[in-house]
Design a binder for these strands. Structure first.
Lengths: 202, 202
DNA sequence: ACCAGATCAATGTTATTTCTTGATGCAGTT
DNA sequence: AACTGCATCAAGAAATAACATTGATCTGGT
């Protein structure tokens, strides 16, 4: 019986950084030393409400979701993260306070993780990463803001359409229950919306 | 979308300890304070190779397996653990060294966990637990040794029969792939063995 | 040459997850 | 009062994944 091995090639991460600014050999070394691979299986928690978010996660393969569970037990998804993107609770990570968010895996997912300590170390030894991470976080910020705007100003149907656009690479990988929880409607209603779309086209 | 809540009655654990030696009210208090409930879902890791085993796990409901993955990616199961038994990597736990073993859930599984620190605390405040845990570990030791002996001296068929006996409570709960990985044969060959058994009986 | 067991590929069986549909309800518009 | 946009609950249907069986073929050790 074979199990998933965590194959540990740092390549995708190095490629990612290189896409911003080429790294020196030494910097690659640093990354190699400070980032650790880790496999999460479907449904497994990466971060649980009440815990401190101790890692920056870079997804190499698979898909994560970050969400909040409200008092009624309803799940609200803040973000999906698949290949070559980052996910963490920045607030909890930097302030070292318990998170009120959850992160878990929607598929078996490989990530590279840096701890807080190691990230500081990285910044100190290779200041270039300040730039990289600044840009990276700015990007996240922008898309978050876009999502907020989108969200507060639209009907369910509009949100659905907008979601299909901005997450087009994921729309046939994600179960509809998850999309519904992102859009903020019930799976049943999403089903009806889709139905309507199909009919409208013909 | 609703998520699973954990129900947290300590009863089974207290009963277990009481089965050794009756506990005082104070001792029960201690147990209540130092053990934490935790739910693992099917396929979820409890311990991952490379991590330090930080908890003693007492299974209340469900079933765990502890295994090692070799260089070829083959899984060798060391132990199954269901209701009212313990599981951990003792070595990693005590020496605080990275484990080379994995533990994961074969079913949704409820455990109570003590951390290293809390366990020491428990021993200090209620020395009676030294006895309890000594006996408990001796028991594990004995069955481990039995397994080893069984293993090095038998054919696959003998190992299968012996497994059916000593794990009789689990034989219709465990998938055969898992049993095969315990016995040390391929699932296909196990299937044939079982077939042979059935035929032999008629 | 034979036996215990592996490997590979195909197929069958069950269980689990996901999706759809209908019935009904309810709070805000118009 | 009726209509729209959504929720809730229950039941089935459809899709997928997990598990089991079987046949064919191979291998290393006696």
């Amino acid at each position: 019986m074979k199990e998933n091995l965590l194959q540990t090639s740092l390549e995708p991460l190095l490629d990612y950084f290189n896409g911003f600014i080429p790294l020196s050999g030494e910097e690659k070394q640093l990354v190699t030393k400070l980032f650790k691979p880790r496999l999460y299986r479907k449904r497994q928690y990466v971060l649980q409400e009440g815990d401190i978010c101790a890692q920056f996660n870079f997804v190499v393969r698979g898909c994560l979701r970050m969400y909040k569970v409200d008092e009624k037990g309803n799940t609200h998804i803040i973000q999906f993260t698949a290949e070559n993107w980052w996910l963490m609770d920045i607030g909890s990570f930097h302030l070292k306070t318990p998170s009120e968010l959850n992160i878990d895996a929607l598929e078996d997912t490989m990530v590279f993780q840096v701890s807080h300590e190691n990230l500081i170390d990285l910044y100190t030894r290779a200041p270039k990463f300040n730039l990289i991470f600044r840009v990276l976080i700015e990007n996240s910020f922008v898309s978050l803001q876009k999502r907020l705007l989108q969200n507060i100003s639209s009907t369910a149907e509009e949100r659905y359409l907008s979601f299909m656009q901005s997450y087009s690479h994921l729309t046939n990988r994600l179960p509809q229950v998850q999309m519904a929880a992102f859009i903020g409607i019930t799976p049943e209603f999403l089903s009806r919306l889709r139905n309507k779309q199909v009919k409208a086209k013909s």
